[in-house]
Write a protein that binds this DNA or RNA. Structure first.
Lengths: 175, 175
DNA sequence: CATTTACGTTGCAGGTACCAACTAAGCTGC
DNA sequence: GCAGCTTAGTTGGTACCTGCAACGTAAATG
């Protein structure tokens, strides 16, 4: 439906024509990247007796501080019932605990335990080591560019993804 | 908490020190990106009465042509039993079919039906439109750079993580 | 031909996910 | 204060995804 104006030099086009082609390429590339990371993370995290969802929840709690269940669910794009069960599992394993919210006795604040925080840091260090290995083949310039681009892509996707309840904004950290 | 070797000048270091920091940043950025995409894909694909795994299988079959179950499982980093069930679902929905392998009567070749191929193209077009919208804010140069980097990251991760659970073949590493 | 190996399916167990229904607690209106 | 509604979280039910183990069948090997 979008005819490639191949009569002209395809490199000089003002970013209108190649957009489709780049979009296709990006879709495929991102697909690959996401799948590889997904499975790598899963296998690696399972070695620590955590599921991926549990690890994600723990990570969210470590980063965002104590959260109510609803907040955690929003942050994870999950139903509150699913979040509840994930928290159950983490409580059973001793990685988080529920404390009564002082201002609302219906609510419970969920926060990582010392053990949970330590476990998360261990896993994080492990995964970061993987990223580190991947980055070793890139020049510092390229690494910076990669970061910038990935963040922009995330921002764009997040904006479009629409009503993200918690609006996770934990992207910006050390410069 | 990581001991920064601050006794030295951090600006002159030959990319050894900043590597850690970049690795951390990459981990976080990739995390965000993957999550956003994951949920976006899930919601979007579910609108077509396909699960993500089913869509991934269909995509693999469309891209790679007819595959045996084992090949599909390897491609998806899944156990063959899981792949079998995913294929079951796709067969039930009429998106793929199994044909007997002419040279091996144990095996079955799985291939998309016309309907399955059409469905995949529809979904793909939909998802690509999303990527396209995301790319609109980037310059052509940045888009190219993003592609290159994402592919390199994928390559690196793929090399490191190796094949998934269901894979027994295709990894002859002679030690 | 018997054994071994490979392909795929099925049984089992556990995780993930949603919706809907439920309990408990807060908040309104009277 | 107590109905009645809303909100926070839990639980039941259902369905899917996933891997491991155990099969049946077919090919390969001796």
């Amino acid at each position: 439906m979008r005819p490639q104006s191949d009569s002209n030099n395809p490199r000089d086009l003002p970013s209108g024509e190649n957009l489709d082609r780049d979009a296709r390429a990006l879709y495929d590339a991102l697909n690959q990247l996401i799948r590889v990371h997904q499975f790598r993370d899963r296998d690696r995290i399972c070695g620590y007796d955590l599921s991926v969802a549990q690890c994600y929840a723990l990570e969210t709690l470590v980063h965002q501080g104590p959260l109510r269940l609803q907040g955690l669910a929003s942050e994870m794009y999950l139903d509150k019932s699913t979040a509840s069960r994930v928290v159950d599992a983490l409580v059973r394993k001793g990685h988080v605990d529920r404390v009564a919210d002082p201002v609302d006795r219906r609510a419970a604040l969920i926060r990582p335990t010392v053990q949970g925080e330590a476990l998360y840091q261990t896993i994080r260090a492990d995964l970061i080591a993987e990223e580190r290995a991947m980055l070793e083949g890139l020049t510092p310039d390229m690494r910076q560019a990669a970061l910038t681009l990935i963040r922009q892509l995330t921002q764009a996707a997040h904006r479009r993804c629409g009503p993200g309840p918690g609006t996770l904004s934990s992207v910006e950290d050390e410069t």
